[in-house]
Design a protein around this nucleic acid. Structure first.
Length: 559
DNA sequence: CCGAAGGCAG
DNA sequence: AATTTTGCCTTCGG
């Protein structure tokens, strides 16, 4: 084994990978590593990644060969790859594709080049329920060429086999659904958007037909969804997180296709229209009248012959919708998201029930080509005044986070930042209403919270867009409001615990391309010597994974 | 038919 | 481990 002291990686036996952050190749190696591993820890000088079965299968699905992975790791690591680790990478990677679902003569078949694997599955008590009738051979002891699978259990089977470590490539095809001619009008897709749409379409011969596209905020996920709809030209059900997003989809579909208004419907609390294009929230699907009661709106999946279902923000898809999705595997499914990471660890279910990752556009690449603003992130350490520190130490564990979050010294730091960015549009985002009210009062800023009526909000947005107001304080509504105007500076004064999701969303607020210098600034204020620092560490993980760096600043002198 | 207000759940 | 916001349902008044 030759020694490459100058290489930035160390690959360990357990498939964790360490990456030196001050290495000259850091950025290039990080970008490559992001395709095959997940970032799990990110202290300043040494980031820890883990290569998981799922990360390898997603890589396999996007066409990255195991040889390329091993070669890359070999070349970029100081001590090469331990033999065991290389074997395991190849073994796991190669399992993707061992099992295939196909349909023949109207039957659903599970086939493999490894008949002994099929025999093993057939022999398992807990897989008996998936197999229907005979498996092509009468003698149970013989090794089968294929297994006949109950079509209604197609989803569950894939879920179970993925859990067992044998993901299935599903080539059994899809029903085409009700026809609905759709053409795009007045839109030109950007290059990467075209690629994303293509990746969902049949790559030579095989029909991918289901899977997930990963794109940053502001990359135009809606347009891509609409373009897929136009290519397939069939009745489509679109599921999304909240009503504003439902309306957003409607608006864009109206603007960007030749569809008549009557063909587009909203299925929500207010309107229950089932049109050839129907847009609904996840909430209405999961809603129960009483605890443990029936989910009356789940029928939406069967209330029309959908040819395509679009899952917007697929990382937020709730458990009952997974269950319903297992039953409709013959329908094409498109997942859209900015991150495949879920806080509940159900990435494997996204993989087996929605589909594998088909396309991934890293944030940094979009930044390079100017489609989103270049952002400088800073973490500002703010010391706590003696009185708050005393309260902090006296408080029980659960109140501490809030006391640190509401650190009154943060106001002065906010003022300094406002000074630094005097003529720019600034959002001040926080978690606690008391804190925000305090800041808004001291600095004489308008404050938007969930309690503010929609019309009042819109008036403020307008003033902001017109430049009459340049600094706006906002509560958690900033995480959801689609129509919140764009700013070039965001100051996060507090957040909800370790949510990576939230950090990414808030950064998303300032990503829209800027007129002159295409730059934006993201500040996050963290109280020194408190638990807030640990949570901040976790919040950063997702953005670090995307290649953002955080500058460390001191907000005030020691108190 | 529509929108607003109040309650509850996630 | 917890604050806030949102969405859905029901009821009520026009």
């Amino acid at each position: 084994m030759d020694l490459r002291d100058s290489a930035p990686l160390i690959v360990q036996n357990d498939l964790t990978v360490l990456l030196e952050t001050d290495h000259e190749d850091f950025e290039a190696v990080r970008a490559e590593l992001a395709w095959i591993a997940e970032l799990i820890k990110s202290p300043k000088y040494l980031h820890t990644y883990r290569i998981t079965p799922l990360s390898l299968w997603n890589a396999a699905a996007s066409g990255i060969a195991s040889a390329r992975i091993v070669h890359f790791l070999e070349e970029k690591s100081k001590y090469g790859i331990p033999r065991k680790a290389a074997e395991q990478i190849i073994e796991t990677h190669n399992r993707y594709g061992l099992l295939r679902l196909i349909s023949a003569n109207g039957c659903l078949l599970l086939e493999s080049e490894r008949p002994e694997l099929l025999a093993q599955i057939k022999g398992r008590q807990d897989f008996r329920r998936f197999i229907s009738g005979s498996s092509g051979l009468s003698d149970a002891a013989e090794t089968p060429d294929f297994l006949v699978i109950r079509p209604d259990l197609r989803g569950l089977l894939k879920q179970e086999l993925t859990r067992l470590g044998y993901p299935v490539i599903d080539q059994a095809g899809y029903h085409s659904g009700e026809e609905l001619p759709v053409s795009l009008s007045g839109v030109t897709l950007r290059g990467y958007q075209e690629q994303a749409v293509d990746s969902f379409r049949s790559p030579a011969g095989t029909d991918s037909g289901s899977g997930v596209l990963v794109l940053p905020c502001g990359a135009g996920k809606t347009v891509i969804g609409i373009a897929v709809m136009a290519r397939l030209s069939c009745a489509t059900l679109i599921l999304t997180t909240h009503i504003t997003s439902v309306r957003q989809w409607m608006k864009e579909i109206r603007a960007k296709t030749d569809l008549d208004e009557s063909r587009i419907g909203e299925y929500s609390g207010a309107h229950k229209q089932v049109s050839p294009i129907t847009i609904a929230t996840y909430q209405i699907l999961t809603h129960r009248r009483e605890k443990g009661g029936e989910q009356v709106h789940m029928n939406l999946f069967n209330s029309r012959d959908w040819g395509l279902i679009i899952y917007d923000e697929v990382h937020l898809l709730p458990a009952p919708v997974f269950r319903a999705t297992a039953d409709i595997q013959a329908t094409r499914r498109l997942g859209l998201t900015a991150t495949l990471v879920r806080e509940d660890g159900r990435e494997a279910d996204v993989f087996s029930l929605i589909g594998p990752k088909l396309y991934d556009m890293p944030w940094k690449k979009l930044e390079e080509s100017g489609w989103i603003a270049r952002v400088t992130c800073s973490e500002v350490a703010v010391g706590m005044p003696r009185e708050s520190m005393r309260l902090y130490y006296e408080a029980d564990k659960r109140s501490r986070f809030r006391i640190a979050g509401e650190n009154p010294a943060k106001i002065d730091v906010v003022m300094k930042i406002l000074q630094r960015h005097k003529d720019e549009f600034i959002l001040i985002i926080g978690q606690y209403l008391d804190q925000l009210r305090g800041i808004a009062k001291r600095l004489n800023l308008p404050l938007i919270t969930g309690g503010m009526p929609q019309t009042d909000r819109e008036r403020l947005y307008q003033d902001f867009r017109a430049g009459k107001v340049k600094v706006l304080a906002v509560s958690k509504v900033a995480n959801f409001a689609v129509d919140l105007p764009d700013a070039s500076v965001a100051v996060q004064v507090s957040g909800s615990y370790g949510s990576r999701q939230e950090e990414a969303q808030r950064l998303g607020r300032i990503l829209r391309p800027k007129r002159e210098a295409n730059r934006a600034f993201f500040y996050t204020l963290v109280s020194k010597g408190t638990t807030e620092q640990e949570y901040a560490l976790n919040r950063r993980v997702f953005l670090l994974e995307q290649g953002y760096e955080y500058r460390m600043e001191e907000g005030n002198d020691e108190l």
